[in-house]
Amino acid sequence: MAEPWEDDEVEGPVFKFLYVNRKAPYGTIYALESLEVVLIAAAFEQDVSLAFVDDGVYQIKKGQDTAGIGMKNFSPTYRALEGYDVEKLYVEKEALEERGLTTDDLIVPVEVVSRAEMADLMDEQDVILSF
């Protein structure tokens, strides 16, 4: 049965949507609820990109274990994004370096861009949602 919030798809032009993830995956709910927006929005068939900056890079770090904090480890969901045609994931180079991380530490393939390139990427968008 369709839920009442699943019937509001719109048809029309394709816009460039960028979801900017800035926060660590746990500690606040921003990362989880951002992912919920991305998954729902996939039904609208827009041109979607995800950016990971600041502590947001921890959202896609390998080896997350949440057993000790009583929360669900939702990081495997990022690997499922490909199935929703969400394939453009950008990670800020400086954010990785500042945290001693490399792309080998990440659970999904990403494109690493500099802080300046990230600004250019944002400039190209129609809609930016920042979490």
């Binding site: 009442p4 929005a41 609208f44």
Partner: peptide
């Protein structure tokens, strides 16, 4: 009260 689709629609419209 409604769905997240309303946010995406707002971004488009």
């Amino acid at each position: 009260i409604s769905g997240l689709g309303q946010l995406i629609e707002a971004g488009i419209q």
